[in-house]
Simulated scan of single mutants.
Amino acid sequence: MAETYVSGAAGRYATALFELARDANAVDAVKADLDRFSAMIAESDDLKRLVRSPVFASEEQERAIAALLAKAGITGLSANFFKTVAANRRLFTVEAILRDFALLVAAYKGEVTAEVTVAQPLSDSHAATLKQALDALTGKDVKLAVEVDPSLLGGLKVKVGSKLVDASLKTKLNSIRTAMKEVR
């Protein structure tokens, strides 16, 4: 985990929660709770407004969060964490905390995410072949985050950490276009 750095208030909260979850052997359970809460934010404009807006009083945020957690069945360490974040008036950082926590969990489990951009959706067999190749290349369990961008025309872009491999037809055509301009 030494290679994963998170910073700022969100990073400190995420690190504290991760360490508590790790010490309690509850990393997977807390991650599931946080994923559920993240999905709730994505689905509800009202919840987005609650976590992002400074106009709500701390007590209002605490009551609303407690009710949401109870409804979603989020209890224990995760519930206490969200209540503490609300009580400390840091609910506006919760989305960054969720992102940073996921990074810490991935590093802890030896996982890495490859951002893959393709011109057309990958078939299951192509995705499996790509995952297998990236697993072998990195020596880690690679999760694929696939995005479709038809402007690539063909091929793909793969970003793992700070390394980017651009094998898209669009980039190759642009390289040819640049080379042709230099010939003139």
Rank of each mutant, 00 (worst) to 15 (best):
L144W: 06
L122P: 02
V116W: 04
E115A: 11
A32W: 05
L17K: 00
S125I: 07
A179Q: 15
L152A: 03
Q120A: 07
D46N: 15
R90V: 08
A114W: 05
A96C: 12
A167C: 11
A67I: 06
A57N: 08
A16N: 02
R22K: 14
M180I: 15
D149P: 00
Y5I: 15
E59V: 05
V118D: 08
A114T: 10
T117R: 05
G11E: 10
R184H: 11
A24C: 02
E115S: 13
A14G: 07
E60D: 08
L152K: 03
L68Y: 04
Q132T: 14
K140T: 03
I65Q: 00
T117N: 04
T93R: 12
L34E: 11
A26P: 02
G155E: 14
G161M: 08
A24L: 03
T75D: 13
A26E: 09
V118K: 02
K159F: 01
A29S: 06
L169F: 15
N80V: 00
L169C: 14
A86S: 06
M180F: 13
A102Y: 08
N25D: 14
A114K: 03
L77V: 03
L77R: 05
L91T: 05
N80G: 09
D35L: 11
A167M: 13
T171H: 15
F82V: 05
L173A: 13
L17F: 01
G155I: 07
S58F: 05
I41R: 06
V85R: 01
F56H: 07
R52P: 09
D141I: 12
S58C: 11
R63W: 00
I65D: 00
A10L: 08
S151Y: 03
G76F: 00
R36E: 11
S125L: 06
K143H: 12
V148G: 04
I65G: 00
V27F: 01
V6F: 02
T84S: 03
R36C: 10
E3A: 12
D33G: 02
T75H: 06
L20K: 02
A136D: 11
R49A: 14
R99T: 08
K172P: 05
K83L: 13
A127I: 04
S125C: 01
T4S: 09
L134S: 08
F81H: 01
L103N: 12
R22T: 06
V51M: 09
D35M: 10
T75K: 06
L164E: 15
A133N: 13
A72Y: 02
E111C: 04
N174F: 12
T15R: 13
V6D: 07
D149F: 01
G76T: 07
A133T: 11
T93W: 13
H126A: 14
D46R: 12
I74K: 00
A42V: 14
A127Q: 09
L144G: 03
F101S: 11
V51H: 04
E111P: 05
D166M: 11
S7V: 15
A29Q: 12
F37Q: 10
K170G: 07
F37S: 09
I176D: 09
R99S: 10
A14M: 04
V146R: 08
D141N: 14
S168D: 11
K48C: 10
A26Q: 07
L134T: 14
L169W: 13
S58E: 13
V85D: 03
V105Q: 05
A133W: 05
D135R: 06
R99Q: 12
